[in-house]
Structures are given as C-alpha cells and as structure tokens.
Write a protein that binds this DNA or RNA. Sequence first.
DNA 1: CTGTATCCGCCTGGATACTG
DNA 2: CAGTATCCAGGCGGATACAG
Lengths: 130, 130
Amino acid sequence: MAKRDPIITLEECSYRKILDIVSSKWAVLVMAVLSGGTKRYGELRRRIADISQKMLTQTLKQLERDGLVERNAIPSVPPTVEYSLTPLGQTLIPHFAQMRQWANEYYDSVERARMDYDRKAENPAAGEQR
Amino acid sequence: MAKRDPIITLEECSYRKILDIVSSKWAVLVMAVLSGGTKRYGELRRRIADISQKMLTQTLKQLERDGLVERNAIPSVPPTVEYSLTPLGQTLIPHFAQMRQWANEYYDSVERARMDYDRKAENPAAGEQR
DNA sequence: CTGTATCCGCCTGGATACTG
DNA sequence: CAGTATCCAGGCGGATACAG
C-alpha cells in the first residue's frame, strides 16, 4: 500500500502556471513588441499583424492584471495610452529567448515527424511493399 | 520612408511554434509523467488527475505526430500499449524545468498583482481615501 | 485615438456509449 | 486494456457598431 503511483494534478503542476499566462497566442507577441520599449496602443495594433482590436485590448488587460505590463493613460485630447513591460514582465524575456532557441533548433524535426506521420496515415502500407 | 516599423506576424514568431506544441494543458502533463520513463495507457490515465479518455488519446496522438512521444503497441490479449519520450521529446525536459523555475520564483508576484488589480477594480477609490 | 459592447460561428473539451 | 464515435455545452476569437 505504499505510495508508488503519484498523481499529478493540474494545480500542482508548475508548468501550468506559466502556461496560463503565456499560452495565449497574442500575449507572447505583445510582450515581444513591448520588449523593444514602451509603445502606444495604436502602435501595437500596427506592429502585430492580424490582431483584432478586441484581442489586443483583452490581451493587454490580462497582462496588466498579471502585473506583466504597465498601462499609462495620459489624459489629453485625443487620449494617449502607453504600454510597457514591468520589471516582472522583463523576467520573461530570457525565457522567450529560450523558447525561440528550441524552436530554431528542433522545429524542423517536428515538421519532418509530422510529414512522416501524415504520409503513413494516408498510405499505411508505405515501407512494406510496392 | 525607411523601415522603422517592423511588423510581427504569427508565422514569423518562433515562440508560437513551441507554443503550438506545448500550450495544450495536457501535453505538458503527459510529457512530465513520461519523463519518468515508459508508461502504459492506463497508467497515464491514473497518474494524471481529471484527464478524460478523449483528451489523453488526443494528446498522445498529437505528441506522437510531432515526434515527441513514441507509441509501442504489443499485440497481445488484452492489448498492451507503451508510451515513451523520443530523443526529441527529451530535449524539452530542461525547458520544462525552466518554466517550473520561473513559476516557482515569480508566480507569487503574479498572484499578488492579480489581487491588487481585482481589488482596485471593485473599489476604484482604494488607496485614495478611507 | 483608445477603447467598449454585441452578435455569432467555430473549435475545444467533457460525458457517454460502444468496439477489438 | 486501449481505444473509437458521437453528442453537446461553453468559451475563444473575429466582425461590426458605437462611445469618450
């Protein structure tokens, strides 16, 4: 009856915590742009291809809530709002670099694996005959 | 008219590539369990709390397609199927460790930021008076 | 310029039942 | 034991219209 079968739960899993933050497909792009310095709302929109207003706003709000991005609204007409990474947000930059490094190094292998897999799925007899 | 406003697209972004693989909430858990060695289907089910059959099967299939996990079916009665990390899959382990490390170091800050943010949202005048 | 609000299609993912 | 098949609710995310 010893404890030989540890159960992993979602809550225990530290990976998950960072994934909750970073797995949004837009969040990493926004932070990537902000890593280059403070940007205004419209500038972010223009820099990130295919992001909708809704998603940009939503992503920024979430990142602000998580303490990763700081919002600075300047009460002027027309209004100006600047966004920048907080010190906490900055700590993720090297982590992103690591992710990019892995992708650069191994993503080709993944793509090759996918092609092999799909080819075999379409033609199960491949490698056996003909 | 110089190129002073680089546009980031989803496709260019290397972060995305690894996120496509890893951002599935179950994928990291499955790989975490498999990092401890070869496991059978049922064992994975028991080890990972709250995972449904569908999600386990689906996740394993995707990881296999990506070349990160290897499936080894032994034709016996009843059938036995073993799953293990491929060498390519192994290369992600240290990366997961990094993710866990960041979470351990900074996640408290994120939670505090969230509480602050939510408190201010509910009570906008907080910090000004009282 | 910087958002908010609404509608809505699509996909993810859970529950359930069935198969080799 | 190790899946497959199907149904279905809920949330994500896009398009559009409107506001301060």
